[in-house]
Design a protein around this nucleic acid. Sequence first.
DNA 1: TCTTAAATTTTACAAATGATAAAAAAGGAA
DNA 2: TTCCTTTTTTATCATTTGTAAAATTTAAGA
Lengths: 187, 187
Amino acid sequence: MNFDEILDAIYLLPKDSKAKLRDLVTEVTFPKGHILLREEKVERSIYFIKKGIVRAFSIKPEKEHTFWFGSEGETAMSMQSYINDLKGYESIQLLEYSELYKLNTAALKKLFSEDIHISNWGRRFAELELIKTEERLISQQFHTALERYTVLVASNPDLIQRVQLGQIASYLGITQVSLSRIRAELK
Amino acid sequence: MNFDEILDAIYLLPKDSKAKLRDLVTEVTFPKGHILLREEKVERSIYFIKKGIVRAFSIKPEKEHTFWFGSEGETAMSMQSYINDLKGYESIQLLEYSELYKLNTAALKKLFSEDIHISNWGRRFAELELIKTEERLISQQFHTALERYTVLVASNPDLIQRVQLGQIASYLGITQVSLSRIRAELK
DNA sequence: TCTTAAATTTTACAAATGATAAAAAAGGAA
DNA sequence: TTCCTTTTTTATCATTTGTAAAATTTAAGA
């Protein structure tokens, strides 16, 4: 998925606005395991995933919590840094070799104030992330672990293949042992 | 909290942009118990709360799930309707007599395409809602019910007084019995 | 105030989940 | 392949949470 397609999937931009964004972007690649951004730091860029899978996690007291998986077309970023210039609570790690488009936040914000199309792109971007997060919240709050796992498998069948179960369990808000039990049930 | 203050709390607008928004808004009041918007319907407006408390809930198979409380300065709306023109999964009900500012979504979107300041206001609006939702999600996923309840009481002491415990329990993602147990522990 | 209804807490039991340890299976490197 | 490490599953027991029903408290109206 190239940069243009990623932009278009969010909000259709006129050619020249798109060009302005393209000028800001650099392509970067990293090996499996690379830490793209670190919790407790203010992150100055956001990364659109061209290819690969990443996970966001934080190491709270002792335990490691995975709270997001991102793949092709999605954006790896700290919302707290992007939105409020605060340090984020998550680290983001590449789960496989990945290719990313890196975009500097400050430069993007400058464009928001200059180009109404890009401003609307930024609005749409936030809105789409909002919907995703709201759906996650509802799923987390009102569905059982079994239901959440079933939905995850149905919507991201490849994820299960490519990601460790302990991380998926954490993402679902349960222990790895519980997830194993759920999987055993389903057989 | 008047309309100007509500706008300013989101993003500072030039006078004339603010005036354009003010022209779109009508003030409405409803009694306790009024259903402001209904699940499974596409909602054409969003409502800024001038005064009062509301709750969003949905009636899934049999059970009623409360997933949001809103009060002064917050916005009562269906994200799915606002963002994707889809029917929302929530109904919103007034928990007390309330005064609201009603804003038509289509008219607002028209301004987004015409006025860069309003477009950036809309971006900021979505971004702030996104941060709130993300924090809810993290809290739900990685903190115990006891922790969540304690935080809720600390940050919204009045809410506990004004809202039924069954609804608060649902909001926390637990049963009313569990919440009673937690409250008994804390005495 | 008294009466009734609604809301909240408590209790008892069942089901689900967590913690821990150990066994089994899968994957990688020499 | 073989050995070694990592990941996943299984088993056991303790804890938490849910369900249902009863007991208590609170609120509201006559």
